[in-house]
Amino acid sequence: MPEKSVQSREKVRYGVAVFPGSNCDYDTYRVISELDNRVNFVWHEERSLNNYDCIVLPGGFSYGDYLRTGAIARFSPLMQSLPDFLDRGGLVLGICNGFQILLEAGLLPGAMLQNKSLKFICRYVYLRVESNNSPFTRLFKKGQVIRMPIAHHAGNYYADENTIFEIENKKLVLLRYCDKEGSLTEESNPNGSLNNIAGITNLKGNVFGLMPHPERASSSLLGSEDGKLIFKSITSYIAERVRSF
């Protein structure tokens, strides 16, 4: 992003991507907007992302999940523009289907398989924050147990042995499925994900994908506000960076 415009504005600028079949875009927009950010929808055919600090790929069923989840959406013009956007200092958050798209695009390592149970699972889960050394989780405490809902059919995280080793070694796992006490048990792993992985970041730390829905856990009326802290983390990170220029 050009530094000049960063200095001369106040609010952090989010873009919520809209693919054919996105269905969590409005919820995501609303939560981000309520947290006093500037937010716009970005149609998947958009190539210019100059006016954003963070692009959010929301949940849903882009292109009907045809072929594989995220397999077709990854070729959209917006997705093609993300590497440049990241090089210019942007952040990218992928939620659920957004995470699946990021994996298909190779912006995060690994792939999603169908849930071990072969069922669509829609319920609250407990998650352990594995690291707060990230723009996306900096306001959490390391080891904090939080609650967010999941809603997916293909959230069974897989990567080959070497990749898993690399991911663990470089501490790229930000969230893991756990029980109420924060223990990583097989019973608390809803979908069969390797190492209970629920959310990972990349080596540069500027991309985060997670299967749980923070936007559905951002109001006490809906049962949890834990998800808000992800958006607040992003905003605080970008705001601090802007001030330090």
């Binding site: 072929l67 594989r68 397999a71 077709i72 298909e104 690994g110 792939a111 897989y158 990567a159 080959d160």
Partner: peptide, 8 residues
């Protein structure tokens, strides 16, 4: 490129 995902 599209029909198969080489990761899996």
């Amino acid at each position: 490129k599209l029909l198969a995902n080489p990761v899996i």
